[in-house]
Design a protein around this nucleic acid. Sequence first.
DNA 1: TTGTGTTTTATTGCCTCC
DNA 2: GGAGGCAATAAAACACAA
Length: 331
Amino acid sequence: MADRRLLYGGGGSNMSSVFFQNQRGPSSSSSSSSEPRDSLFIPGSSSSFLGPRSMVSFEDVNGRNRSKRSFFCSFEQEENGEEDLDEYFHHPEKKRRLTTDQVRFLEKSFEVENKLEPERKIQLAKDLGLQPRQIAIWFQNRRARWKTKHLEKENESLQASYSSLRADYDSLVKEKEKLKAEVLHLTEMLLLKEKEKANLELSDTTKLSEAYPKEPIGDLISEDEVSKVSVVACKQEDSSAKSDVFDSDSPHYTDGVHSSVLEPCDSSYIFEPDQSDISQEEEDKLNNSLLPPPAYEFLKIDGAHYFDPSSNSCDFGFPVEDQAFNNFWTY
DNA sequence: TTGTGTTTTATTGCCTCC
DNA sequence: GGAGGCAATAAAACACAA
């Protein structure tokens, strides 16, 4: 480390190069920075160390006073005349910025290759009349700036990508909610339809039981029909409960959007026929025949399953939230 | 003119590679 | 162990509004 600092202080490069690039026309400035630039400077004879102010030169090879400054310095500073020169040498500790042309030159070189091989560093230092150490520092700082900008761009790109994905996600969520509502509506329609259908069948069954009072009802109707009767009984028993289904208090409904539609169906929901018309024995038979089948059958409507058949619980396979709808789509 | 924020040049300390 | 890169930082130079 200390050695490097010493290198900076004692830089062995020739600091007295005089540049004439500006007098060679535009083509010279556009030449590739990776090319040797020997033709663009005149090696000076002085080897005296000028530190950071090394861009200043006094003599050309022949010892003649060609310019008080390097080519680059002359661009911006020659109009300041002697005062500027005084400042230059009376305050040698001051930091001085590179000239615009030096920076342009370095930028072009950086575009070609952002890493600096020792030979290139020496060459650039010669071309620009700077210390190799200054060239190295400039490239180092330039790489840091490039990295910062690159990270900023990357960040912007990621943010744009995130915004786009977020918008997609939001629209999908809206679409999902819309579809949920549609499914809910259609399910209710189907239930109503089934209810009406079951009502008709129920009235037929009642007529049959009146016509054949000794026969158990279970023998007269299919198991499937019994199921339907049961669920309809449930719904009829507590038609007002339907409003409760949509209440947030319902334990089977949690998110305020989804509805499990059906309420738990315990034995109290079972259809109870008019006891005045049926004997105790018959009543028992009837009750047995009307015991609720597995819950999943309750909604076996028109051959389509709507709830989890593996679940016998009265929540009809509706856990909380979206899983209910996953079940919808899987059946 | 001056205070303040930004940019550029340079230093320091640490790390990796050969 | 030396050379070089990088991150963090200091400090000078610069830009600009009030």
